[in-house]
C-alpha cells in the first residue's frame, strides 16, 4: 500500500541503489579485465555493441528475458513471504523435462492453444512438485529450506539426465534428447518479430504477481509472514500454509519457465542442458527490491549481459564466465549501497 503511493523523491532513492550497483560492478569488472590482460574499454564496447547494438543481440536478449521474468515472478512471492527457494534451477529442469516428455504425446490430439496451456500447467506442476519436499520439511519441522532446495537441485540434474538418456530418449544411440518438436508445435513469435510469445507470458506473470502481492488478501498474508512471523502468528495467520503455498508457487513458476524454454527455443530437452537461470534471477529480484515493475528492465539488462557475454566470448575471447563475475559484483555493490543508505538514514 505504502509503496504504491511513493513520492518522486523516494522513487529516485529506489532507483539509485541498483544503478549505483550496476555502474560500480562495471568499473570493478573493468579492473578485473585489466588484470587478466584484456582492454576493458574495448571489451565493454564489444559487449554493448554485440549485445544491444545488433538485431540478433536484441532478439536473443528478449528471448532470454522470458525465463528470467517467469522465474522472478515466483521468487518475488517466496522472498516476500520470508522464505528462501534457491533451487530454481532444479525446478526449472523438472518442469522442462515434463513438458518435453509429454508434448510429443499430445501435440496431435489437442487444439494448439490448449496444447500450450496444458504443457504450461504441466511445467508448473513439475516445478511445484520438486519443491514439495523442502516446503513440507520447512513448514512441519522447520528444516532449513535453503539447504534442502539446493540439494534437490543435484537430484534434479541427475534425474532429468537419466530420463533423457533412457525412458524419454527419442533416438537411442544418437545424442540423447527427447523427441524434437516440429516448428509449428513450438511457441509462435510475436508478430513482426522473431521473439516468441514467452516474453509476453513473462511480462504478464511478473505484473500479475506484483499486484497479487500488493493488492490481495493472500498477498497481505505473504508480506505479513515475511515481515514479522511472530506478529503473523499473533494475528492468527496460518504460517505453515503461507510457507508451503509460497514455495509451491515459486517452484511452479520456475517449472513454467522450463516449459517455456522447451516450447519456445529448444523444442526438446537435451542431455546436460542446465542453463541455471536461477542464479541470475535471484540477484535480479533482490536488485529490483521485489518490485515486479523494476524486474522488467533489470531482466532485460541481465539477458543482454549474458547474450552479449556469449557473443563477446566468441568474438574477443573473453571468458564467458566474466558475465557471472559482473553479476556477482552487482549484488555485492547493491549490498554496499543498501548499507550506505541505512547509515545515511540513521544519521
Amino acid at each position: 500500500m505504502n509503496l504504491i503511493r511513493i513520492g518522486s523523491k523516494q522513487a529516485a532513492g529506489v532507483v539509485i541503489g541498483p544503478v549505483f550497483a550496476i555502474l560500480a560492478a562495471l568499473v570493478a569488472g573493468g579492473i578485473i579485465l585489466l588484470i587478466i590482460g584484456f582492454n576493458p574499454l574495448k571489451t565493454y564496447y564489444e559487449l554493448f555493441s554485440l549485445g544491444a547494438g545488433t538485431y540478433l543481440g536484441i532478439t536473443e536478449s528478449l528471448k532470454r528475458m522470458a525465463p528470467l521474468l517467469i522465474m522472478s515472478a515466483g521468487l518475488i512471492i517466496v522472498f516476500k513471504a520470508g522464505v528462501w527457494n534457491i533451487g530454481g534451477n532444479g525446478q526449472f529442469l523438472i518442469g522442462a523435462v515434463l513438458a518435453a516428455g509429454i508434448a510429443p504425446l499430445i501435440m496431435d490430439k489437442l487444439p494448439i492453444f490448449f496444447y500450450f496451456v496444458v504443457l504450461g500447467l504441466l511445467g508448473f506442476i513439475g516445478g511445484a512438485s520438486w519443491v514439495c519436499i523442502p516446503a513440507i520439511l520447512k513448514a512441519k519441522y522447520e528444516i532449513n529450506e535453503i539447504i534442502v532446495t539446493m540439494m534437490m537441485d543435484f537430484i534434479a540434474v541427475n534425474f532429468t539426465s537419466y530420463l533423457v538418456r533412457y525412458p524419454l530418449n527419442a533416438q537411442p544411440g544418437l545424442f540423447p534428447q527427447t523427441a524434437v518438436l516440429p516448428i509449428e508445435k513450438r511457441l509462435p513469435n510475436i508478430s513482426l518479430t522473431e521473439v516468441h510469445i514467452g516474453l509476453i507470458v513473462g511480462l504478464v506473470m511478473v505484473v500479475l504477481v506484483h499486484y497479487f502481492i500488493k493488492r490481495t488478501a493472500l498477498g497481505y498474508e505473504f508480506r505479513f509472514a515475511g515481515e514479522n512471523k511472530k506478529a503473523a502468528i499473533y494475528a492468527g495467520i496460518n504460517i505453515k500454509k503461507v510457507i508451503v503455498l509460497a514455495m509451491l508457487l515459486s517452484g511452479g513458476f520456475a517449472g513454467l519457465a522450463g516449459a517455456n524454454d522447451v516450447l519456445g527455443i529448444k523444442g526438446s530437452f537435451q542431455a546436460e542442458w542446465n542453463p541455471q537461470y536461477a542464479f541470475s534471477a535471484i540477484p535480479l529480484v533482490f536488485l529490483a527490491r521485489f518490485n515486479g515493475f523494476a524486474v522488467i528492465p533489470l531482466a532485460y539488462f541481465f539477458s543482454f549481459l549474458s547474450i552479449g557475454g556469449e557473443f563477446m566470448s566468441r568474438a574477443a575471447n573473453v571468458p564467458v564466465f566474466f558475465v557471472q563475475v559482473a553479476e556477482a559484483l552487482m549484488l555485492i555493490f547493491f549490498g554496499v549501497s543498501e548499507y550506505l543508505k541505512k547509515r545515511s538514514k540513521l544519521f
Binding site: 500500500m1 490481495t216 488478501a217 498477498g219 497481505y220 508480506r223 515481515e227 514479522n228 506478529a231 499473533y234
Partner: peptide
C-alpha cells in the same frame, strides 16, 4: 509481536480482519 514495523498504520489496523468486508472485495482483493 503486536505490530509490523514496515507496514503502514492502516495495514497494522487490519491484523485479524483483513479477510472480512469491507477490507476485502469479492474475497480476494484488498
Amino acid at each position: 509481536e503486536g505490530s509490523v514495523a514496515n507496514f503502514s498504520l492502516a495495514e497494522n489496523a487490519i491484523f485479524r480482519c483483513y479477510k472480512k468486508k469491507p477490507y476485502v472485495k469479492s474475497g480476494i482483493f484488498l
